[in-house]
Design a binder for these strands. Sequence first.
DNA 1: ACGAAATAGGGAAACGTTTTCATCCTCTTG
DNA 2: CAAGAGGATGAAAACGTTTCCCTATTTCGT
Lengths: 331, 331
Amino acid sequence: MQLVTIKDVAKRAGVAVSTVSRVINRSGYVGEETRRKVQSAMRELNFQPNRIARGLVSRQTSTIGLLIPDVANPFFAELARGVEDAAIARGYSVLLCNSDWNAVREQMYMHLLHGRWVDGIVVVGSRSEVVAIREAADETPMVLVDRRSSDFEWAVWTDNHLGAVMAVRHLLEIGCRDIIHLAGPADSPSAQERRRGYEDAMRAAGFAPISLEGDFRYASGFSLISELIAAGRTLDAIFAGNDLMAIGAIQAATRMGVDVPRDLAIVGYDNIPSAHYVSPSLTTIEQPAYEMGKTSFELLYELLTNEELDYQQPIKFEPKLIVRESSHRPI
Amino acid sequence: MQLVTIKDVAKRAGVAVSTVSRVINRSGYVGEETRRKVQSAMRELNFQPNRIARGLVSRQTSTIGLLIPDVANPFFAELARGVEDAAIARGYSVLLCNSDWNAVREQMYMHLLHGRWVDGIVVVGSRSEVVAIREAADETPMVLVDRRSSDFEWAVWTDNHLGAVMAVRHLLEIGCRDIIHLAGPADSPSAQERRRGYEDAMRAAGFAPISLEGDFRYASGFSLISELIAAGRTLDAIFAGNDLMAIGAIQAATRMGVDVPRDLAIVGYDNIPSAHYVSPSLTTIEQPAYEMGKTSFELLYELLTNEELDYQQPIKFEPKLIVRESSHRPI
DNA sequence: ACGAAATAGGGAAACGTTTTCATCCTCTTG
DNA sequence: CAAGAGGATGAAAACGTTTCCCTATTTCGT
């Protein structure tokens, strides 16, 4: 089979290519009968307009970039689904870009996306400076997720500071005093906000904050807590920067003979699916990943289509405490 | 800022556009000095060739489609990472398509990818007939993952039948007799292969196979097993078609007061990360998701670049039994 | 009944590349 | 020293659309 082009359709329908184009795009004037002729010609030839050629002239590719740290992380996977579902509903396709938490790779992708003429980009939990991102992507419209910026940006976020405060307060309420924070990477803005939330809540309660730096992965939670316990450090609670590390911490504690939650209460962040079926099940701060993804695409879509759109406040989702077994404590 | 085109570069370097093109693509003859002039002009203008225009004429987009049931499923997420990492290494981008286990949506995506002129498609665990897939995607090169076909296809797979047999044998060895299968959807080929493996192994051992049909999701494992136990059905083992359902089964059993593994042994399939930290940890059949993803892209790449490539046997990965707590039984 | 809209369509120029062809040098080589 | 082979470059034609600009008709308000 050879490519069926708009020309073939035009010839078959006995009209000019411009007419076919008008039929496809429902633009301009087309007579009723002509439209039918063209449409049946398209059907007969199984014609599909070529997005590449279309993109070249219209300068729109109906494609967006999704730049996330790692789809293998359940939180981002869920978010990605939200983005994709919303995108396909509007006729957009999604280019998947995993930065692997790496700023260099992030920039590289930005540059690549720019060269591919994506209509916009959803950037999740970026580690790069916003300025650097902007530069790499030039003028491509962007929506930042979970990354507040002091700049004038379009964004979707949850209040990480508040979420962390909620987590710490919960631990204080059930009687914990020696709460250690398992922080995310230093160059992740959301990790830092959570850390500050933890520190502020601790200080407000009159306790000294202590943070350990992990990398948001299961293994780092596991090894940091293993070492801590092995070193004989006593503690009665852990607030982890995300669920993966929290689950690692649970495993480490259990394996070292520390009973969770009796001797050690643990709270995570994100509420990924496995937080619910790990044992003991994990108390955590929920972020509505799917909704956030969906909303961020929709915001981007507004940005792309609504010409005279004004700057808008970042869209904020509320963090929510989900209490499960890992912080049950008979008082 | 306006787009920097090859024309701008040509003007700046004082050469023709065709020369610039030759420099970019390292094709044809270009004098040493001219090359340097062009290159510095490109650098000064921060020129980036436009993939869209390039794609139109060369008919190659350096983009592939990744059609999977659901990125939110950890197995597919891991596989997607494999595909993407391999793709980016060769300069390809990946268009993410979640079919949501839905054959109609699958066809729709195929059609869409065809219209976007992707160079190739990696199709994972498809539910559609191969013929239908082919048709929708026309002549676009494809690699099938985890989907053997009687047709003449390029594929990457693991022996699902064997994996299932291994799982059942393991259960028999630890003394289980009343083994029920929690099958995946009827129209998923890999689910059916696993089911047949289960049935064959059971019959070979002289037992009658009994299967329940789930949908590969956590909830279906949970509810099917809850109902089964509530109905008073006695059983001493479950072999689930994937880990998500197996974990659902573990939770259901535990919640109904059935001790896993003492009263009920459970084996899953896939070896997703949470199989390792669910409690009791889950015995499962491992599939090397990341490797499979990586390999499938590489196979596709071969297909795209190596003109005189001959038909090749499907690439086969070995399933592997990972024994964990959910099937520990003191004999 | 007359001119201005409105409606309907065609022709051709873009869009930013690659690629083919033609041209013009400068060496070899017999 | 003529003939051909390389080497280096430019001009222009693709690629498959959209879009702008025309030219006809028809419809309608006055």
